[in-house]
């Protein structure tokens, strides 16, 4: 079953649509508002708290009225650690994305086009690998990296992240390649294109949405990942943003405005990426999840 969302109202005559919207309202309207509150308030609160002074947070965390201050941001931005953490995050997330796609795109294509026992076994293994708890892999990886003496390096975290996300990426990419009509491939073959030529000039452009979706998700996930970073970097000086945040929030006596400012700074790149790729994500995610 290929799940391609078809907007319900597209191409429908004008009248039923209007009636439909009105029918919804008595239950759906309030529920929708509740959803909006449940998901909107936390976001609002991150931003509000990051604009308060530590003293105000202690006296009344829940208050809406306060004199906004950008102290927390100034303090966060003045800290040179933030810039290096940001760079680390960028390095880790983009490194992971590039490496993962380099492996997963050809693999996803291969598994989509070749049928047989090997494919079935490989898919099963990938599903298992994708589902493994990260905590289960961090213990052996720590020891292996230790014996290779590559702990405390950015590339090590990239490597671990890549290994962790490749199964997920392959599984997500496969249905995109499967949905490319076989006829295209045959046409390319008749025109005398080699396998590589077919892959790069025909399949890849057609399946570019899938690659973009997967790339975005891998980037998002490695941006937020902190378990590997916390354990494989031996000193907090090299932590990416997510690890810094995780470390601060589990400490005692938290400086909430500073922490929330850090949270906002961590989220801004996500917001911009999200703005570009939301449409892709909305359709692409469902395709990958259901197949």
């Amino acid at each position: 079953m290929t799940v391609t969302p078809i907007p319900l109202t597209d191409g429908m005559p004008e009248r039923p649509r209007r009636r439909r919207t009105r029918r919804f309202e008595p239950v759906a309207g309030p529920l929708r508002f509740v959803l909006f509150l449940v998901y909107g308030i936390p976001i609002l609160w991150i931003v509000l708290t990051s604009l308060k002074s530590p003293r105000e947070v202690i006296t009344s965390q829940a208050s809406l009225l306060f004199t906004p201050t950008v102290d927390a941001y100034v303090a966060a931005l003045a800290d040179s650690g933030l810039f290096s953490a940001f760079t680390q995050s960028m390095l880790i997330a983009s490194g992971t994305t590039v490496l993962t796609l380099m492996v997963a795109v050809p693999a996803g294509y291969g598994l989509a086009r070749v049928d047989g026992r090997v494919t079935t076994v490989a898919l099963g293994l990938l599903i298992v690998l994708q589902m493994l708890p990260q905590t289960a892999s961090v213990i052996p990886l720590f020891q292996i990296f230790g014996s290779w003496r590559i702990l405390d390096q950015t590339s090590t975290v990239v490597l671990a992240n890549t290994a962790h996300l490749i199964p997920f990426a392959i599984i997500l990419l496969r249905p995109f390649f499967r949905s490319v009509p076989e006829a295209l491939q045959e046409a390319a073959a008749i025109d005398g294109a080699s396998t590589f030529r077919t892959f790069f000039s025909v399949m890849l452009p057609v399946a570019r949405n899938g690659v973009a979706t997967t790339g975005t998700l891998v980037f998002l996930m490695s941006w937020g990942e902190f378990l590997y970073s916390v354990n494989f970097f031996l000193s907090p000086g090299k932590y990416p943003l997510s690890a810094l945040l995780a470390q601060q929030v589990s400490a005692f006596g938290i400086d909430w405005p500073g922490l929330m400012a850090l949270a906002v700074i961590t989220s801004v790149p996500i917001l911009s990426l999200f703005g570009f790729t939301y449409r892709l994500l909305r359709e692409g995610l469902t395709l990958g999840a259901v197949k």
């Binding site: 976001i43 965390q61 998002l220 941006w223 997510s242 945040l245 961590t266 989220s267």
Partner: peptide, 19 residues
Amino acid sequence: LMVFIWALPPVVNGSVWKF
């Protein structure tokens, strides 16, 4: 909005709720 929350790093969401 909901998908954006889902896309945020869990560390961020976790910190907010702890708060």
